[in-house]
C-alpha cells in the first residue's frame, strides 16, 4: 500500500490531484471553523458587494458572505457525492461479481438488464427517482447511487471475469482452496483496484450531479449553502453580481478536477503495467 502511495505521489496527475483536493478536504473537515463570517447572517447593508478585503469573494443578494457559504457548503456537497458513489459502487460491485460468479444464462440475463438500465441517462434516472422520493440531500444521494449502480456492475463484472481466468486463481483452485478464500483473497484484491480508480473518478461526476440537482431545485433546499443552489439563486443577479456565480462554479470545478486527476493518478499507481 505504501508503495502504491509513493507511486501516486510521484505521478504527475496524482500529485496535482492531491494538491487541488487539499483545500477541499480542509473545507469539508473544518469549513465552519475557517469561515470568516456567519454563512447565514443576513445583512441588507452588505447586499451584492463585489469581492473586497472584507468579503474576499463578495456577498449575495442577502448580504451573506460567499466565501463562508462555500466553505460551509463543502461538507454537504462532498459528503453526498462520496456517500452516493460508495453506495453505488458497493451495490453495483456486488451485482457485477455475482453475475461473473454465476456465469451462463444468469450472467447473460443480469448483464442485458444492466445494459438496458444504462439506456436511461444518469441525470434523468436521478430526476425520476427524486421526483418520487421527494427533494433533499439524502434522497439525492440515493438517487445518484441508483443511477451509478449499473455502470459499476458492468465494470466489476468485466474485471471479475478477467481475474477468474488468471493462472493464480486456477492455481488456487488446483490447491483446493475454498470458494470464500478464492473470492476474497485471490480475486478480491484484483477487483478492488480498478473499482477504486473508477469510483474516484465517479466522485467527480457525483459532485457535478449533486450540484446539478441542487441547481434544478431537486437537491438541497434554500437557505442551505449548496453550491448548485447558490448558482441557481445567483442567476437573477447575473448582470449585477457575476461573482455570485463564478465562486461556487470554481468550487465545483476544483473539486471535480481534483477527483478526476486523483483517479487518473491512482490508475497509474495501482496498475504499474501501464506506463
Amino acid at each position: 500500500m505504501s508503495e502504491a502511495w509513493q507511486r501516486l505521489v510521484r505521478s504527475r496527475h496524482g500529485a496535482l490531484g492531491l494538491i487541488l483536493l487539499f483545500p477541499v478536504v480542509l473545507a469539508v473537515l473544518a469549513g465552519p471553523l475557517l469561515a470568516p463570517h456567519n454563512a447565514d447572517a443576513i445583512s441588507f447593508a452588505a447586499r451584492l458587494h463585489p469581492p473586497s478585503a472584507r468579503f474576499w469573494l463578495g456577498t449575495d443578494e442577502f448580504g451573506r458572505d460567499i466565501l463562508s457559504r462555500i466553505l460551509v457548503g463543502a461538507r454537504a456537497s462532498v459528503a453526498v457525492a462520496v456517500t452516493a458513489t460508495l453506495l453505488g459502487t458497493i451495490s453495483g460491485g456486488l451485482l457485477g461479481t455475482l453475475s461473473a460468479y454465476l456465469g451462463g444464462m444468469a450472467d447473460e440475463a443480469i448483464m442485458r438488464t444492466i445494459d438496458a438500465m444504462m439506456a436511461i441517462p444518469a441525470l434523468l434516472l436521478a430526476l425520476l427517482v427524486l421526483s418520487s422520493l421527494g427533494k433533499g440531500m439524502f434522497d439525492a444521494s440515493l438517487a445518484i447511487a441508483i443511477a451509478f449502480a449499473p455502470g459499476m456492475a458492468r465494470i466489476t463484472r468485466s474485471v471479475a471475469l478477467a481475474t477468474r481466468q488468471q493462472d493464480y486463481v486456477n492455481a488456487a483452485i488446483a490447491r483446493g482452496e475454498s470458494a470464500g478464500w478464492i473470492v476474497l483473497r485471490e480475486m478480491g484484491p484484483n477487483v478492488i483496484a480498478p473499482l477504486v480508480v473508477e469510483s474516484t473518478i465517479r466522485v467527480a461526476f457525483a459532485v457535478m450531479l449533486v450540484a446539478t440537482l441542487g441547481f434544478l431545485g431537486l437537491g438541497a433546499q434554500p437557505p442551505a449553502p449548496d453550491w448548485g443552489l447558490m448558482i441557481a439563486e445567483a442567476r437573477q443577479y447575473l448582470h449585477q453580481a457575476p461573482w455570485m456565480i463564478v465562486a461556487p462554479g470554481a468550487a465545483i470545478a476544483l473539486t471535480a478536477v481534483g477527483f478526476n486527476l486523483l483517479g487518473d493518478g491512482l490508475r497509474d499507481a495501482l496498475n504499474p503495467r501501464v506506463g
Partner: peptide, 15 residues
C-alpha cells in the same frame, strides 16, 4: 479534457 469533464453543464452555460 480535464475542464470538460469537471464543469457541469449548468456552470459552463451560465459562464
Amino acid at each position: 479534457s480535464y475542464l470538460g469533464v469537471s464543469l457541469p453543464e449548468f456552470v459552463t452555460a451560465t459562464m
